[in-house]
Amino acid sequence: MNALLTITPVIMLLTINLIPFFIALRVLFPARTARTSGIASQQPGRSFATGLVNFVFFVVIGLATASLVEKTEGLLKIILSLLTILSTACLLISLAFGLTGMSGLVGERLAPNQSSWKQVLWGVLLVGLGGSVPLLGWFVLLPYAIWTGMGAFIISLIARNSSRGS
C-alpha cells in the first residue's frame, strides 16, 4: 500500500518537471500542438480509440521485440533492437505531443483569455495533479488524457489531406 501511495508524490514531482517541457513544445511546434488540441476537442471519441489502438501496438511491439533481442544473434538482433528503439521513440513522441495538446485544451477551456504558455501551464498542473489522485486519477483521468492526446496527435498528422479531399 505504501508503495502504491508513493505514486502520487512521484506524479506530482513529475508534473513540475513537465511544465517547462510542454511549454517548450508548445512554443517550438505551435501549429502541430494547436491542431492536436483542436482535434481532441472536436473528436474526443475517435481520438481516444485511435490513441488506445496505437498505444497498445507500440507498447506490445516494444516489449516483444526487446524480449526477442535476448534470444537472437547477429543481424536479426540488430534489426530487432532498431525496431525496439523505433517503437519506443514513436510512443514517446506521440505521448509528448498528445499530452501537450491535451494540456493546451484544458488550459484553453480553463483560462480562455490567458496567453498560450499560461494555458499550457494551467493545463499541465490540472492534468498532472488530477492524475495523481489515487485510483481515479491513475486509472481514469491519466489514461484518458494520454490516449486522447496521442490519438489526436496521430489524427492531426493525416487530417489535412482527408479534410481537403472530403
Partner: peptide, 8 residues
C-alpha cells in the same frame, strides 16, 4: 477546412 482553428 484544415481544422486549424482554435477549438472555440
Amino acid at each position: 477546412l484544415d481544422a486549424a482553428l482554435a477549438a472555440a
